[in-house]
Design a protein around this nucleic acid. Structure first.
Lengths: 164, 164, 164, 164
DNA sequence: TATGAATGAGTATTCATTCAT
DNA sequence: GATGAATGAATACTCATTCAT
């Protein structure tokens, strides 16, 4: 959608409803028939963030074999997605900087899953191992949704080997 | 300065020049005597980013001993700084999302230095090792300037041990 | 009707067609099937003002006995009416302030009838007597439709005595 | 002022800030440097209503002789005023219909003063006499500020004689 | 150096009205 | 007869910027 594209690229505050309307090819008034306010439009866009995260994490979360949990986690950022999805995720990461939208516990389920995997594999400090791996997954994801997949690709195999 | 505080907390677009003036306790007109435009004010704030980076990296960059390079790099995010500096760095990281201000090569000197260190230590894939360590350093820095130093602190010793 | 209630309470300009539609429980489009425009809706509401006035005045106008004319005129504002009618009359009085709807001759028939009565009773200045009594009738009516019947009630008998 | 003129003639809701600005020959923005909001502008206009009322009533209120109190009260609506003042008073009367601005006790001081006068003159029902006279004064005032002074003028002497 | 009055373009949002279904 | 999607113009208000003092 037009709003998603603009919010993701210019930011929420720098995107006027008139620009959204123009890009979407509709009248400005129509936006406010669909959404109570500009903020509400953003909220609607963010609404399915949780379910989308769950969907992306699905493969990891249902995995029982700890070694596979690690492997699949590392692969997460490298999944090929419809590039239009990048807008969505870019907006997600951007809003981490907006206190109103930042939920520091959002990654917890994944962190816990990976921690359990490291535990099962008898790593001496599973929480810290997990914390670091999740940092890496996020950092790589950010570079990729920002458009720099090429520079990150080589890290995939490298990490897979490292954590084998 | 007032502008830095507001830009860092609310974002550039959500911060009006009138709010800056009010918080700074000066007239709105005065701002435009000092800076040509609001953008110019932001630029001035960002101006010393490079020199500040260099300053922060100084210890690392002048180090000759590769093992020490790694150690000092890991310690970078944990340096105690005047908390007012957090505004500055928070703004830096925030603007990474603004294409106009994002310079993907900003980290290069540090990356190169760390790569050379890993090379000297005969790591088989020094570039990738370096790339990953820098990702971690950035990820940890972000959490810290966002206000969550506590959760990151334990990672310091853990990383120091891991890379010893 | 919903429009009458809103026009009478909030005023014509402060009442949007969407609020009317919502209160009436119909679609906004429907309003414009029934009325050409918002103004036309107001006109329709005002349409029967004249006939309603005539109806209210009926008792007075058909009276032959001058003393009875005066008595019945004084009683006019105190007639018990369906309180939903207050919306109608409140709107009437409110629109007196709108030049487009103010008709300074609206009261003429009543004024003339009362003047004739005072004449028949040999009052020396029947026009002025009439003018004043009509002022009083209107002033009392206004207070009553505005919701303050209690404070006006005592004036009824007082005036009846005064003009006996 | 421009706002007063428009509010008095078209009504508060029917008067846009852009029309006010245009009539006043200033930019729309300037209005909001002087007043926080359109409502605040109206409030500012109404602010001195009380002091103006007191000023107009002054002659009556300070009078000791009851006969003179009545006489001066009757004369109140007929005082020659700068016709620009009519805008002010027209707005006052108009806002009586706006619950937010209607203060039913506004007339109390005058009512009380006149009641006392009728009492001193041994009228049997001073409150009702007062109530009626104040109704008349208001009704006449309304006609005059609405622009119909001519039709009301003859009532002045008539009332003076009646209450002598 | 500093103020504060002034502005034109822009903001989110609401409005009365239209029209295809 | 009725709906609901759609719109262009208007609304109250904010913005970054200018300039006389």
């Amino acid at each position: 959608m037009a709003a998603l594209e603009l919010f993701a690229n210019k930011g929420y505050d720098a995107t006027s409803t008139s620009k959204i309307a123009k890009l979407a090819g509709v009248s400005e008034g129509l936006i406010f028939k669909h959404f109570e306010s500009k903020k509400d439009l953003l909220n609607a866009l963010m609404k399915d963030a949780e379910s989308k995260l769950a969907e992306v994490w699905w493969e990891v979360m249902e995995e029982e074999n700890p070694r596979e949990v690690i492997r699949k986690s590392i692969n997460l950022p490298f999944k090929e997605v419809d590039p239009s999805e990048h807008d969505f995720w870019r907006l997600q990461f951007k809003l981490k900087w907006d206190n109103e939208y930042h939920n520091p516990n959002k990654m917890n389920p994944l962190v816990d899953k990976i921690t359990a995997a490291f535990e099962a594999l008898n790593y001496p400090e599973p929480e810290k191992e997990s914390s670091i791996l999740v940092h890496l997954i996020e950092a790589i994801s950010i570079e990729i949704v920002r458009g720099d997949a090429a520079s990150q690709k080589p890290l995939q195999q490298f990490l897979l080997d490292k954590y084998k």
